[in-house]
Design a binder for these strands. Structure first.
Lengths: 195, 195
DNA sequence: TATGCTAGATAGTAATCAGTCACTATCTTT
DNA sequence: AAAGATAGTGACTGATTACTATCTAGCATA
């Protein structure tokens, strides 16, 4: 049938991770099988285990990939923005844009979080969210210090709501079945959030 | 070990649904097996198929159960409350309390939503969220009419954010691994939401 | 061009999945 | 108490799961 494709081990690992992220946009992460991943990248199922010790190891690599990318994107967006509220807005939009590009990411992270007992991947997700939350709280406190935010505001709740607002958009897109729309709705959502 | 239990068909269906809801609080709905459900309710796996035509039929019954309960709870909470903002708060707290009692519910509904092609159960979830959103938007518009809300507010986005706020709390509880805490955090979250 | 290494294919494994079915225990009705 | 109805058992099926042993094709270096 088709000729063999020969990729370097590193390139194959990279392609595997990208394939998993893409597949999570189409089906439930929990039901994703190694067979499905292999098929989707045009390789036999057994070949995956030459590059990953186990399926869990694949998830680990995927979460690491996501964590690295999302933090880089969000950090780049906020970089150099003086005003903390403007920085928050830039982060919000960058976050939403990232999700629109990779619709599988929220499901993927969510899926890891609801593992009953923590795996390496789920611990990584927790760490990512922890860092993200701290960053948000820092900016919120800074904004409070500058008098741009009511001092009475519960910073912790506000940070949770930031993530919740993104979640709300994601939920809407799941219902509508149209991920692209959340980019358009994002400014209005943040506008509401700011108040 | 334990003696056999003989329940009526209706009672067994009810127990099945309750078991599934409870199990969703402990593990991923997508990985839930009929064997696991049966084991958890002290019955053999084959017995389930005497009461449900298929596994999908179980999901259908579960979603129907949730939809009925959650709407009833929320409606009861808002009943007789004159002020629309106060009604929203009552709904919010009732919603959060319901989730605290049944931590599996958000995962369950989420799981149904990310089915690639709609099943009977996923259509039911969509319908539930649609009804819920309309109810929220009605109350928000009413509050706007009474001048309790800025007229500039995007009602659709505000409704999405209401659900998003709940989602944010759920997310926090997933990270913290402590569902009970969200009840305590709920008032602060709604307080933030109101502004 | 010959050699050594590695990526991938092929073809397995035991375990687990949803679903079926003949049989049995239990309840209800008479 | 007898009999019909029904809830539950336990052993099965074929498909699918993660994972592996063995073989083959392609690449780089000499």
């Amino acid at each position: 049938m088709s000729e063999r494709q020969h990729l370097s081990a590193e390139a194959r690992r990279e392609r595997t991770v990208e394939t998993v992220v893409a597949l999570c946009g189409e089906e439930e992460p929990a039901t994703l099988t190694t067979g499905r991943i292999a098929e989707s990248m045009g390789v036999t199922q057994g070949a995956l285990f030459r590059h990953f010790a186990s399926k869990d190891a694949i998830w680990e690599a995927v979460v690491a990939w996501v964590a690295e990318r999302v933090m880089a994107r969000v950090a780049a967006a906020a970089e150099g923005v003086e005003d903390p509220l403007a920085a928050l807005e830039a982060m919000f939009l960058a976050h939403v844009a990232f999700i629109a590009e990779h619709p599988g990411v929220p499901r993927l992270l969510m899926g890891q979080l609801q593992h009953p007992r923590p795996t390496a991947a789920s611990r990584m997700v927790r760490g990512l969210l922890e860092r993200y939350r701290r960053r948000l709280e820092g900016l919120l406190r800074e904004a409070q210090g500058r008098g741009e935010l009511r001092p009475a505001i519960d910073v912790e709740a506000a940070a949770a709501q930031f993530i919740g607002t993104v979640q709300g958009l994601v939920m809407q897109s799941l219902i509508a079945g149209d991920v692209g729309r959340i980019v358009d709705q994002a400014p209005a959502a943040f506008d509401l959030y700011r108040h």
